[in-house]
Design a protein around this nucleic acid. Structure first.
Ligand SMILES: [Mn+2]
Ligand SMILES: [Mn+2]
Ligand SMILES: [Zn+2]
Ligand SMILES: [Zn+2]
Lengths: 133, 133
DNA sequence: ATACAGTGTTAGACGTAGTCTAAAGCCATG
DNA sequence: CATGGCTTTAGACTACGTCTAACACTGTAT
């Protein structure tokens, strides 16, 4: 059992069962933005007997305990993001891949002054094509 | 049959059947961002025999013909937006309501300069609470 | 008038992502 | 051991969207 993950879970009031650590080992470290079923597939490679319900339960628990964020950017799938700091997202329309865009790469102004809206959080969602740079 | 809607449909190469006009009368004029089933409910009040499949077919046709945009901002529902110009969105976390934010109410910079990303379109997605203003 | 073709509508089956349920397993404590 | 509280599990269930295949409508050709 990965001690670093065990420590994170304990530090957030989560009993570190073998299944939860296996899910955490993948989803808390990925650079990706995987869906629940992608997490299930990835975790099953090393922990083949884990059930789908446990993966969903664990992901929802991690969201509740603020180890993950849920993003809803594309049709038919919720994706999970272990990058908790403020950042933006770029969606490659060709592959569906979701890329992080650093908070300071884009500048956004006047969000605080919108009449009638108390903005708790915001992000820029960009869509387009990836290209060589 | 609403002549204004008939004209819009014809102008976009869509045969103005009674069902399509009924859907258009609601969804092309709403200030809301309704889901397909909300559209179905609204249209059925005046056209009770319309089928769910026709509403979905019609909405998808309107999207294809660029009379509507699809937005994916919340869990478990695609919503439709007849406001075609560039604008941002604010989601009231209490009610789930989606409000338009005028393009110029917020300023966004440096989106064009992101390395490796060809941004075709973008918007700011804000979440928070509505309040009196 | 009738036949026919092309388009549009319909009910209901289907696919699929996510949730729920109820039983079984695990583990600490007495 | 026995008990109690979590946790996991398989599979049922729900909800949104799509697909299918039959039926209806409309306009044109005969
Ligand atoms: Mn969730
Ligand atoms: Mn669609
Ligand atoms: Zn991210
Ligand atoms: Zn809008």
């Amino acid at each position: 059992m990965n001690e670093a993950v065990v420590t994170i879970l304990q530090g957030n009031g989560i009993q570190p069962s073998a299944q939860r650590v296996a899910v955490g080992e993948y989803v808390l470290r990925t650079e990706d933005h995987p869906s629940a079923d992608q997490v299930w597939a990835a975790v099953r490679e090393r922990f083949p007997m884990i059930s789908r319900a446990t993966v969903y339960n664990t992901l929802n628990l991690f969201v509740e305990k603020k180890l993950l964020r849920e993003l809803i950017l594309a049709e038919g799938r919720i994706v999970f993001d272990p990058n908790l700091g403020p950042h933006h997202h770029f969606i490659d329309e060709e592959s569906g891949a979701i890329l992080d865009v650093p908070w300071d790469a884009v500048s956004v102004d006047r969000v605080e002054t919108l009449p009638g809206m108390d903005v708790r959080e915001y992000q820029v969602v960009m869509r387009g094509r990836r290209r060589a740079h």
